[in-house]
Write a protein that binds this DNA or RNA. Structure first.
Lengths: 240, 240
DNA sequence: AAGTGGTCTAGACCACGGA
DNA sequence: CCGTGGTCTAGACCACTTC
């Protein structure tokens, strides 16, 4: 007897089905949708499978879940997107361009107040300050202006960063557990214009990145790109 | 007989343990790490639990998994971050500022070539072009310059967008299944300077957003913010 | 108190992809 | 071929919340 093998419903299928109900407006914004148990019964699959699909939708910001209260379609979608912070060297080489790094300066200095606060250093404390430029095919691509916390990363004291960029050294040698990025546009300062061969006041795209190793601050970097030649793209946060 | 209730190991615990092994360098970059089955045995939990923890690490870009080949620590961490694209009005009101929207223009026009290509419109086809400005406490906060695909969203033809911004109307009335964002810095054009009350050539932060409903393009928007007063922050993509 | 999502388990089958 | 990750299931217990 050949039994029509009922194709197993995967969480992807469930996800697609639920997504369709939402985007088609069958379940209206703000409205309560059926519980996991009911959906599982309805779609003939187990509850954990439904759970996984719904978790993905919740991650993407499409629905909101609360115990006892149930699951609702989020009315206004401030959706989340996943962005990949590029690593200069990899990025440049992936484009088939030549990569060069040039150190501008390396010193132990007292960081400016905002940086000191971010690194959680006591007043008057010094930190490692490294500045360098990354070039793609000879054109300046990014300034890396970075403060490294010597308490967290004492090994950095022994590095001169002449041949390897601070970024690359840190990526290879120092792990981190958390990172935060701030993205904004600014007018290039005079120093930045020089380093990037820009005209006065040209726009630059700035990424400020802070990383932590558990509770300790590792580094705070300001990555400055020429505005007209740099962009970042994102994709929706599906996260199945 | 009181048995010491062995506290259940949750996938969070497993995640934390594995993360620690990675960040402590016990498992070196590029190196193979034990399989799910072995970890499950070792940490006394079931394989699906280990799987969930490892899936999260893989999502965050920390490890790379391949069937048969096993799981490796990613040597270079171009880590992913989750960014929330703010919705102007919600953003402004959340800060306790007054929100005002002003329509600049609304017309049926032939879009410029790049936009035409993105919307996948035939040559010569027209689309809805809406331009407006969002104000926070009377100060211009964002220009919204948008093309809407009338084939996908015929309802938009009947909207005059006088009182409600195109953004808000779309968010409320039109679902989308995919979105892509492009972020970059630019110098304000003359028109943008006027609309945002900026000096000539001041830097602006631009978000270009395209959204799709399944296969059809919904809209392409160019959102322009004054550079000095706008930033976006991200958090690491943990996605447990 | 009770309902809903959150999660774990044990076992199983499958699919990919390296050897 | 066959080991490793990918996934599903059925059942169960737990932890929030709201009622």
């Amino acid at each position: 007897m050949s039994v029509a093998t009922l194709p197993r419903r995967s969480y992807r299928d469930i996800h697609a089905i639920l997504l369709k109900r939402i985007t088609d407006g069958e379940w209206s914004p703000g409205g309560l949708i059926p519980g996991e148990a009911e959906i599982a019964r309805h779609l003939k699959c187990s509850r954990p499978t439904v759970n996984r699909a719904m978790r993905a939708l919740a991650n993407a910001g499409l629905i909101e879940r609360k115990r006892k209260a149930g699951t609702r379609v989020v009315p206004q979608r401030a959706r989340k997107a996943v962005l990949t912070i590029p690593i200069v060297r990899a990025e440049i080489e992936a484009r088939g361009q030549s990569y060069i790094y040039k150190l501008l300066s390396r010193a132990m200095n007292q960081p400016p107040e905002p940086v000191r606060a971010i690194l959680r250093l006591p007043p008057q404390a010094k930190a490692i300050h490294v500045r360098g430029v990354h070039f793609a095919d000879g054109l300046p691509q990014q300034i890396d202006d970075r403060w490294i916390n010597p308490k967290t990363i004492p090994e950095a004291l022994e590095q001169d960063f002449q041949t390897i960029s601070a970024n690359e050294w840190l990526v290879g040698a120092v792990p981190y557990t958390d990172a935060e990025h701030r993205l904004f546009a600014a007018a290039a300062t005079r120093v930045e214009c020089e380093a990037l061969s820009l005209e006065k006041d040209e726009p630059v795209f700035v990424i400020e990145r802070t990383t932590w190793l558990r509770d300790a601050t590792v580094t705070h970097a300001r990555l400055v790109h020429p505005g007209r030649s740099f962009s970042i793209t994102t994709r929706d946060a599906a996260t199945l």
